[in-house]
């Protein structure tokens, strides 16, 4: 039982990371129906920005987090403007291939600059290094910080989406971008803003993974990105609370599977669950099935 709680706590930490990445996937998909493959590389860049802040500039965790989020925001918006905007009226598969191109570009440019080898984050000191026990369950400060920052960011996101003008515009564009445009909403600005928010969250996830797992490399985004996307689909793509639930669910399942059986099977279980969910409820946990009008 204690092992179960320990694993669940580890799973919640990992799930926070997935949830943050999944939010970016789900928002972008909701608004332009694109599986933004480059998103996982924005997360990777977030980890590298944090690394540079902490090693070259000897900044603390919080300033590094903020800088990393800001830089990722800029990169996310740039990607959208340069690579996706010219393809606004092209087929979705063409945009998808472009996204794959951007993803490869970011990975290999990082590789050319920082090298292909794994780098380790500087050891954390002070509060980030502490941990405490409840019974035999060990909880680290890092885990607490990861979960709290994730929750703060999610609350902030909910506030933006539900209460602000731009949030309203985002929801309108994702429902019907043509109608939104006719109602005077600037669709391009709204799309850029969506990329900005998603990328900021991915940047936060990147640096938190850095301090949590210590090692980063230019291809580190691929698998977590894939799983975060699975999380988004699991919860119902385009639905923000769905991505959060999906992220935490995938994180917990993954940690439990590797804790209780062969860790080699954990990704297999994640994908098997995905396929089952899709077959039973194709629109995801919180999604609504839509009917094509005949």
């Amino acid at each position: 039982m204690e092992q179960f709680f320990q694993q669940t706590i580890n799973g919640i930490s990992l799930g926070s990371i997935y949830a943050l990445i999944a939010l970016g996937y789900t928002m972008v998909y909701g608004i332009i129906k694109l599986i933004n493959f480059a998103h996982s590389d924005v997360y990777m860049l977030g980890a590298y920005f944090g690394y540079v802040c902490m090693t070259s500039f000897k900044l603390g965790f919080l300033p590094s987090l903020l800088i990393s989020m800001v830089l990722c925001t800029l990169i996310g918006v740039m990607i959208e403007k340069i690579a996706y905007k010219p393809l606004r009226n092209a087929t979705r598969i063409a945009v998808l291939i472009t996204a794959i191109g951007v993803s490869l570009f970011l990975e290999y440019v990082t590789m050319a600059i920082a090298g292909a080898n794994v780098r380790s984050y500087p050891p954390q000191t002070g509060i980030l290094d502490q941990s405490f026990n409840i019974g035999s369950i060990n909880i680290t400060m890092q885990q607490i910080i990861i979960v709290s920052i994730t929750i703060i960011l999610m609350v902030l996101l909910q506030f933006i989406v539900k209460k602000t003008r731009i949030g309203k515009a985002m929801r309108a564009v994702s429902l019907d971008s043509d109608a939104a445009e006719l109602m005077g909403i600037n669709v391009n600005t709204t799309i850029s803003f969506t990329f900005a928010i998603g990328s900021a969250l991915a940047g936060a996830a990147g640096i938190m993974v850095g301090i949590y797992y210590n090692s980063i490399n230019p291809l580190m985004g691929m698998l977590p990105g894939l799983k975060a996307f699975v999380a988004a689909v699991f919860g119902g793509i385009g639905i923000i609370p769905g991505a959060m639930i999906g992220g935490y669910f995938i994180g917990i399942v993954e940690v439990l599977v590797s804790g209780y059986s062969n860790s080699m099977y954990r990704d297999g279980v994640v994908f098997a669950i995905l396929i089952l969910v899709l077959i039973i409820k194709p629109a995801g946990l919180l999604g609504k099935n839509t009917r094509e009008k005949v």
């Binding site: 291939i97 472009t98 191109g101 951007v102 490869l104 570009f105 990975e107 590789m111």
Partner: peptide
Amino acid sequence: MILYSVLLIIIMIFRP
């Protein structure tokens, strides 16, 4: 791979 990815993006933008 950088050249390859740039090529990919350019082709898709100009000939989707």
